[in-house]
C-alpha cells in the first residue's frame, strides 16, 4: 500500500571558517579603457564564484558585468585565498574584492574629481560613468578617466583587498567563542510516498526557503539550493559508504555500488529566497553553498513518519529500515 506524508525541517549555517582567521585577498586592476581584471585564487568548484565576484567588482566600480574579467587560475599572479569551503568565498573573497575595487575606484575618483570640479567624496560610479552625487548630468566616462590616469598621469590603477575575520579560539572550559561571521537560515518541507509492502520511499517534492542575506545572483543561489536538495535526497534515502556499518564488508567500488540520485530520483523543487542582509558581508551577502544539503534529509524522514507513523533514527532510510520499523510497530 502507498502512503503519503509531509515533513518539515529548518536549519542555520555559519559563514566562513569556524573560529575565523581565514584570509582571502583580491587585486583589482583597471585597464586603460576601463575594463577590469579581478585577480585572486578563489576556486570555482561549480558554485560560480567567478560570476559572483565579477558582479561584486562590477557593482563597486560602477562598470557593466561584462567589462570584468576574472583571473583565478594561477598562484603566480593571484594573491592568497584560503580556499573554497566553509561557505566562505562569496562572503570573504567578496569582501576582499569589494575592498580592492573600492581602492581602484578611489584612484579613478581622485582624477575624476578634478574634471568634475567636485571632491572625491562626492562622487559615485555606475553604468560605466563617474558622476557627482545628486547631479548625474555631471559625469565622465570611466574608460576616459582610466586612459588619462594610465597615460596622462602614469598611474597604475590597482586596488588591493584583504578580508580576514579575527580568530576566536573557544574557551576550554565553556566553549565560549565568537566563531562565525554571520548565520544564514533555512526551512524545507518534503512530501514523500512510502510503499508499505516493499519499504520503498519516493520523494514527491521538496520546497525550500533560504535566507542568504543578499542574493548576489538569485540564479546561482537557486542552483545551490537545488543541488543541495539533490544531495539531501541521496543522504536521506540511498547513499551509504559503509553498509551495515561494517567497513570491510561490501565497500562501494564503483558508481554502480555507491549510488547517488539520478534525474529520476530528485523531485520537483520549488525555491523561495528571503533576504535579511548581513551587517558585514559584501552588499549584505551570507554564505549559502553548504547549508542546502542539510535540512532536506530530516524533512524527508519527518515526512516518512507522517506517512507511516514510525521514526527511523539512522540514515539512510533504506527500504529495509522502513520494513523493519513497520514490523516493530506491528
Amino acid at each position: 500500500m502507498k502512503k503519503r506524508g509531509v515533513g518539515l525541517a529548518v536549519g542555520l549555517y555559519p559563514t566562513g571558517m569556524s573560529g575565523g582567521g581565514d584570509s582571502s585577498q583580491a587585486v583589482v586592476k583597471v585597464k586603460p579603457d576601463g575594463s577590469v581584471d579581478l585577480i585572486l585564487t578563489s576556486v570555482d568548484i561549480g558554485q560560480g564564484c567567478k560570476t559572483v565576484l565579477a558582479q561584486i567588482a562590477a557593482e563597486e566600480l560602477g562598470v557593466p558585468y561584462d567589462r570584468v574579467d576574472v583571473v583565478n587560475d594561477d598562484t603566480d599572479t593571484g594573491p592568497l585565498c584560503f580556499g573554497t569551503f566553509a561557505s566562505r568565498v562569496t562572503f570573504v573573497a567578496g569582501n576582499a574584492t569589494k575592498e580592492a575595487a573600492r581602492e581602484a575606484k578611489q584612484i579613478l575618483f581622485s582624477i575624476a574629481a578634478d574634471k568634475l570640479e567636485a571632491s572625491p567624496e562626492d562622487l559615485e560610479a555606475a553604468n560605466g560613468k563617474i558622476y557627482v552625487k545628486g547631479a548625474p548630468e555631471r559625469s565622465v566616462d570611466i574608460g576616459a578617466i582610466a586612459g588619462e590616469a594610465t597615460f596622462g598621469l602614469r598611474k597604475v590603477i590597482v586596488g588591493r583587498g584583504h578580508y580576514m575575520r579575527t580568530p576566536s579560539a573557544p574557551d576550554p572550559a565553556t566553549g565560549k567563542t565568537d566563531p562565525f561571521a554571520t548565520l544564514a537560515w533555512a526551512a524545507v518541507q518534503a512530501e514523500v510516498e512510502v510503499d508499505t509492502d516493499t519499504g520503498e520511499v519516493t520523494v514527491l517534492r521538496l520546497d525550500c526557503a533560504y535566507d542568504v542575506g543578499r542574493a548576489v545572483n538569485p540564479l546561482l543561489v537557486e542552483g545551490q539550493i537545488e543541488g543541495g536538495a539533490g544531495m539531501g535526497v541521496g543522504a536521506a534515502l540511498m547513499e551509504q559508504l559503509y553498509p551495515y556499518k561494517s567497513p570491510v564488508k561490501f565497500p562501494a567500488e564503483t558508481f554502480g555500488d555507491y549510488v547517488i540520485p539520478t534525474a529520476m530520483d530528485v523531485p520537483d523543487i520549488r525555491t523561495v529566497i528571503y533576504e535579511c542582509p548581513s551587517t558585514n558581508g559584501p552588499f549584505g551577502a551570507k554564505g549559502i553553498g553548504e547549508m542546502t544539503a542539510n535540512a532536506p534529509a530530516p524533512a524527508i524522514v519527518a515526512a516518512i513518519h507522517d506517512a507511516i507513523g514510525v521514526w527511523i533514527d539512522e540514515l539512510p532510510v533504506t527500504p529495509e529500515k522502513v520494513l523493519r520499523a513497520l514490523q516493530a510497530k506491528g
Binding site: 561490501f250 533504506t318 520494513l323
Partner: peptide
Amino acid sequence: DDVRASAWYRRQASEG
C-alpha cells in the same frame, strides 16, 4: 547479503 541489500530484506521484500 551484499552491497545492495541484506538477505533479510530481500526475503521480506519478495513477499511484499
